[in-house]
Write a protein that binds this DNA or RNA. Sequence first.
DNA 1: AATGAATGAGCCTTCATTCAT
DNA 2: AATGAATGAAGGCTCATTCAT
Lengths: 233, 233, 233, 233
Amino acid sequence: MESHNGSTRATDPAHMTDAPSKTPATRRVPAQARARKTRELILEAAIQLLEKRGLRGFSTNRLAEASGFSVGTIYQYFGNKQDVLDALARHERDRRLARSTKTLTARAKESGAAGLSLRERARIVVQNELRAFDGRQRARKILFDLQWRSKQHRDMDRPLKIFADMLVAGQVADGEQADVHLGAIDAFVLTQAVAGVVRAALERDEHMLLLPEFEDSLVELIVNFLESRRRKA
Amino acid sequence: MESHNGSTRATDPAHMTDAPSKTPATRRVPAQARARKTRELILEAAIQLLEKRGLRGFSTNRLAEASGFSVGTIYQYFGNKQDVLDALARHERDRRLARSTKTLTARAKESGAAGLSLRERARIVVQNELRAFDGRQRARKILFDLQWRSKQHRDMDRPLKIFADMLVAGQVADGEQADVHLGAIDAFVLTQAVAGVVRAALERDEHMLLLPEFEDSLVELIVNFLESRRRKA
Amino acid sequence: MESHNGSTRATDPAHMTDAPSKTPATRRVPAQARARKTRELILEAAIQLLEKRGLRGFSTNRLAEASGFSVGTIYQYFGNKQDVLDALARHERDRRLARSTKTLTARAKESGAAGLSLRERARIVVQNELRAFDGRQRARKILFDLQWRSKQHRDMDRPLKIFADMLVAGQVADGEQADVHLGAIDAFVLTQAVAGVVRAALERDEHMLLLPEFEDSLVELIVNFLESRRRKA
Amino acid sequence: MESHNGSTRATDPAHMTDAPSKTPATRRVPAQARARKTRELILEAAIQLLEKRGLRGFSTNRLAEASGFSVGTIYQYFGNKQDVLDALARHERDRRLARSTKTLTARAKESGAAGLSLRERARIVVQNELRAFDGRQRARKILFDLQWRSKQHRDMDRPLKIFADMLVAGQVADGEQADVHLGAIDAFVLTQAVAGVVRAALERDEHMLLLPEFEDSLVELIVNFLESRRRKA
DNA sequence: AATGAATGAGCCTTCATTCAT
DNA sequence: AATGAATGAAGGCTCATTCAT
């Protein structure tokens, strides 16, 4: 029924903009600013609510109360409850992706001409993923699930594919890695395997996420799979 | 030892007992038989309902209607709605595990003294897993999720560990595999990775499950991981 | 719809007999004995259940479970749930009355020719009443209420009247008390005033029941009222 | 922000506020007015329902139907069923207290410098109490009970203490009564004794309430108790 | 832009009672 | 005499959503 927000790229700074088409450019800037602010406030309250009460306790009425806005207002910004959750999920996914990308790039630069080995890159990504669940763990887990179950495959998968490619791709020629191009299915398998393990660990015991052996195990899962794919190609 | 779950009252201590052995001798047999039948009928109706209406449409009242029993009766057999779902989930998991185990054993026997290679065993398991979702896919997916999110880690994980061990263990000496003993964490990672991939595929597109490339990809994921672990050990 | 039990006098040893008319005298004594036993077991379980779960948690199904008999059996002995409660209430009332009567008589005997003063008698009764709620306080409070609200005025009031008279009546001539004969209304007022105070104290704070000042206050309430009535007469 | 009572959620702390003073100034007046009206309509329907169907027949669904609002609306104004009953009970208690206080003051004024004797004051209070149960007797009896059983001791007892003091306190010096200050326990005993008698009479036979002898008996109960307390002090 | 009163279908669960065995 | 499976009306309550203001 309403605005939403564009999907936006991870690194995109214009992130979450939902000014819809009707406001070409110059109409009532203060109102727009207020709207943006309102939207953000609602989302922030939403995350907190999710963290505190879980998905079951996350109701529009409760969100209204928690955000300080009325239900009506929330429906002004989001078509329905699901939309709020979707916006949240997208936001989390983007944050995670952006973080990995950034770290990967930064480390690659540091490492100079030699570039990072596959195993190094894998470890960076894994660490990033594992540490993403520090605060607001509950909310993140829920969103993680939601994302997964989401009907918006198309929308949600694209960034993951990009991400997988980035993991595989060497930044430079170092003899070792000539851009392995992962097939769609292999990318899917790799991506979801990692996600599945993390999800499960999150469910079972959050401490597991921080065990070195756990990290190692995941890295090996990734590296060995990728190497076998490269051999095949 | 299985099936059921707490009859009637949540506080019922006689919970989980399935073996009718304690009954002195022949008393109450007709009642017991009827009870068992009823329970089964309810569960069958439950699966169908889950398939047809999804988790959201799965209400106790609806289950009553669908099963042909009254709500009261359902509550005589299951402490609450969740118990029904749990019983269903357990049932599915056991079926899957049993099937893999059986196939594995059968094929090992066929293959004679040489035994099965790791890759062969992995493929058997994967195929089994992938084909488990023939009919009632929706219900199975839901139960799969439920199982995953279940608080009953202990209960749910044990069979998986056994299963992982069985996958790894060679039946006989064929030079290649001297019983790789998977550590707890590695077993967890492997198991959940596979589950994660299957779950995701189920969500995205059920057809994917039957693509040969998908199967291959999964097998490689497993085999390469296990081989790397063996090398390490 | 069934059995019930006779009202019986407090001191009546044949108390709680519910053998209905159909069994004149001699039929199947063992069966009768068993029936009596069963009935008692049910009532005992009922009190315990009431104590443990309160009136709200007191259901026929629960009673069946707690008593070790089936619901059907309970309905064999009591026409309906209310009947069980009524039997319990009567039982409690009788116990309390019997106790007061006994103590009063005993003390009167001890005190020799002089007899007990009104104040002494009042105190005995009050103490008895206050201490009646030692164990099973919860159950007793509930039954107390039930009794009060009971539709069976006729049945419930008679013993109270007798009791009031006994309180007022001196056992012997001691100059002081020439049998004050309480009018029906005065007896009602006195009786219910005491009951009301006890009930309220029970609700507010059980410890209050044991405070000496509380006991004193109640005794004064009674004594002063009775003396004023005597003056009037 | 106002009146109501715990709106919506049981955990709402802004419970019981009645003074509308805090509202900044003039905002939301129409909505507020409507809300107040709705609340009152619900309460009125509630009393009627209680009168007609008794406590057992008093269900939220029935109240919705009777009030002409939906269940949802009722839950917007009262946290749960008990809250409705509590509000009703409080309302009744306040009415009764207010009435006694008013009559007492008025009569004291009329009586001039001499003031009212203790017996006169007692009679006023008793009459007031007895006549409070004209219409809606059933509802009042139920609420009376509820009040009694209420967990909100603190809240419910305070007004009673004030009331007891007022009963005891002479308005002016008339030689007879120099402010007898009732101890907390004595006040409790007196108060609950009267309440107990009235309650019981209500239960047994409403006509009793109007018998002159009944009134006399109660007055004597009060007066004699208070005089004995005064002597003691 | 914002409000929030109102809705009502529907949810999960309880429990007194019956009756065939 | 005893059982206990089965019943189903009814209960309290939630919550996404609408719409007049």
